[in-house]
């Protein structure tokens, strides 16, 4: 607590460069965009330039399209985060064992994560192609399908294709996180449990799981934020189709701004997305604090 003033000056010195860049870039756009949500600036509207108050928010929240978009966004966010977390943990447990080849596996597992999203999206689109995609060819060869399927052209499968592509790329990140957490566990605890007659499953739930819980929370928070505002992969793989089955809030924001010229509506959507993400993060942080205190 000594030298409060000096501390503050020191902090200011350390913070200034970062804050200058971040706020220098975003402060005006953030405020301008917020004004856009309150004033109708849509160039095609007959009410252009009029103060709209909260009517854009109200209209957006009342539209069924918004809730459908939100549902699809949550579908993507929850399914891929859950898959990545569960698969990540299972793979980490496997890679934490000692068997021939595990060292190589540990170093190649990271490769998908390093592949750029644009490349990942294009690659899966190519592999899932209904007319000549390699996935169709393999499945047909294995007699799992009788003829080539249109995975990206079917509303029932399109979202899952994107989830698949995203999970393939991002699970390695979870694996790395979990692996390090697992390696922090003292092996003698397992020995002791085994002596006490605990099976593999029991020691997983009573030793492993509690130990990786904080890691899990971090992964979930990080990935939720990223996924909620994911754009590139949708733009590359499906552009919201088929029959809107992959139209997320973020993609709709893009459509409203750059196709429909509804700038105010797009600004409102963007603010709602940021609010939703902030809300989710707050909930997670609460949960994490409770965990720490427990």
């Amino acid at each position: 607590m000594r030298l409060r003033k000096g501390e503050e000056r020191y902090a200011a010195g350390l913070l200034t460069p970062a804050m200058l860049i971040v706020f220098g870039v975003i402060i005006i756009p953030i405020i301008t965009t917020f004004i856009y949500t309150l004033v109708n600036i849509d160039p095609l509207s007959s009410h252009q330039g009029e103060f709209a108050g909260l009517s854009f928010y109200i209209r957006t929240l009342r539209s069924s399209e918004f809730w459908a978009d939100l549902g699809r966004t949550l579908h993507f966010t929850i399914a891929s985060t859950a898959l990545e977390t569960i698969l990540g943990l299972l793979i980490a447990v496997l890679l934490n064992q000692k068997f021939p080849g595990v060292a190589i596996l540990r170093s190649i597992i990271i490769i998908p994560w390093a592949i750029p999203t644009v490349v990942n999206g294009s690659l899966w689109k190519l592999m899932l192609n209904g007319e000549y995609g390699v996935i169709n060819a393999v499945l047909e060869k294995l007699h799992l399908i009788s003829s080539y399927q249109s995975w990206l052209g079917n509303p029932k499968t399109a979202m899952w294709c994107i989830i698949l592509a995203d999970t393939w790329k991002m699970t390695p990140l979870a694996v790395i996180f979990f692996l390090a957490a697992l390696q922090g566990i003292d092996q003698s605890i397992y020995e002791a449990a085994r002596v006490d007659g605990a099976g593999a499953l029991k020691s997983f739930f009573s030793i492993t799981f509690p130990a990786v819980r904080p890691t899990m929370m971090v992964i979930i928070v990080m990935r939720t934020v990223e996924k909620f505002k994911a754009f590139d992969i949708f733009y590359l793989m499906t552009r919201g189709g088929p029959a809107n089955s992959t139209k997320t809030l973020m993609y709709d924001t893009y459509l409203q701004a750059f196709t429909n010229l509804n700038f105010s509506e797009a600004a409102t959507l963007a603010y709602l997305i940021a609010l939703a993400v902030a809300l989710l993060t707050l909930v997670y942080i609460r949960l994490m604090r409770r965990e720490e205190n427990a």
Binding site: V22, P29, T33, Y36, F231, T253, A274, T281
Partner: peptide, 20 residues
Amino acid sequence: VILFTYMLPPAALIIPLYRI
């Protein structure tokens, strides 16, 4: 505030940014 800026989707900033 810093976290919130990170959460803002880029689409929220793009039009004013372009003008600037």
